[in-house]
């Protein structure tokens, strides 16, 4: 890949009349990564993708895709990009194979390469031997064909807009496996609001809310930024223990349910050190001490909750 960053957005703002869809967004997606673009519905994910694919122009700021300025240099960039919109639309009168060969012709692929690649991708999409016209496909079949067409040019950058949202659990797993299989071969940029998908396959994520990037980091780093969660089960006066724990400098939040206390700790080591002393001071015993790593979903909810 020519550029170190597959995608680079600098101070990108996009307005629709009075509505600010993207507000001074800075985003950098390193080449070769599987990058999750997370956000609730209406956060601006699809708008960002429309800017990346040259379908829309930023109101201000610059967008670079594979080193090409977009939309002015979109044609050069798009030759190396595969794109799947959230609801892919096809020519209903074509068969799946015909559509892939049509896509190959748009990329000017040699006929032999086109036929070979179409056969491999149809097989991978579970559509080999399907002679039905696309008009007769189910939504899941269309989504799988959409992924196949996005891979026809063996792209350096694959942009997927909510690729798993229309799929059943098995279809979802297959798509995620396919994304993982592309690791090291291409950069994958995919938007989703299904956080478990992002957690499963992404090296790095950005969280977008109301047109602003709230965070961009590796998944593990985001989790550690959020701090650890400690679950205590106490024998004795749990209420007194909760009060002392809540006052500790490393405690962000403490919530009690009977003898069980959940603590959001900013410094896990300090919590591990001080909790036994707190229990001893309160004359309580320790039944269970468990550290729980926050999920991406918890990080997401915390960040988006703070922003709103």
């Amino acid at each position: 890949m020519a550029s170190e960053s597959a995608i680079e957005l600098r101070s990108v703002t996009k307005r629709f009349g009075d509505v600010v869809a993207l507000d001074a967004v800075d985003l950098e997606v390193p080449a070769g990564r599987i990058f999750g673009f997370l956000g609730p519905n209406g956060a601006g994910k699809t708008t960002t993708i429309r800017l990346l694919t040259g379908l829309a122009r930023p109101t201000s700021g610059t967008v670079q895709v594979l080193g090409c300025e977009v939309p002015d240099g979109a044609a050069d960039a798009l030759a190396r990009v595969g794109y799947l919109p959230d609801v892919p639309a096809f020519y209903d009168w074509m068969t799946g194979e015909e559509y892939l060969l049509f896509v190959a012709s748009l990329f000017a692929l040699p006929e032999r390469t086109a036929r070979e690649r179409a056969a491999v991708l149809l097989e991978a999409a579970g559509l080999a031997g399907v002679r039905t016209r696309i008009g007769g496909y189910s939504r899941g079949m269309k989504q799988r064909l959409g992924i196949a067409q996005a891979l026809m040019n063996a792209p350096d950058l694959l942009i997927l807009d909510e690729p798993t949202s229309a799929l059943d659990p098995i279809g979802r797993k297959e798509v995620l496996d396919m994304i993982v299989a592309l690791k090291g071969k291409a950069t994958v940029f995919f938007s989703t609001h299904i956080l478990a998908d992002a957690e499963r396959v992404c090296d790095e994520v950005a969280i977008l809310d109301r047109g602003r990037v709230l965070a961009q980091a590796a998944v593990d780093e985001l989790r550690s930024r959020a701090g650890a969660k400690v679950a205590l089960e106490v024998a004795g006066d749990a209420e007194a223990v909760e009060r002392v724990v809540a006052a500790a400098p490393w405690c962000r939040t403490a919530t009690r349910s009977g003898a069980r206390i959940e603590v959001q700790a900013s410094d896990l080591a300090a919590a591990q050190r001080e909790v036994p002393a707190i229990l001893a001071g309160a004359g309580a015993g320790l039944v269970r001490f468990e550290t729980v790593e926050p999920t991406l979903e918890e990080v997401f909810v915390e960040l988006v909750g703070k922003a709103s």
């Binding site: 798009l78 919109p85 892919p88 748009l106 990329f107």
Partner: peptide
């Protein structure tokens, strides 16, 4: 119908 988007995000 959205078919234009599929084509115009290719080198066309």
């Amino acid at each position: 119908s959205g078919t234009a988007v599929m084509v115009l995000t290719k080198p066309v």
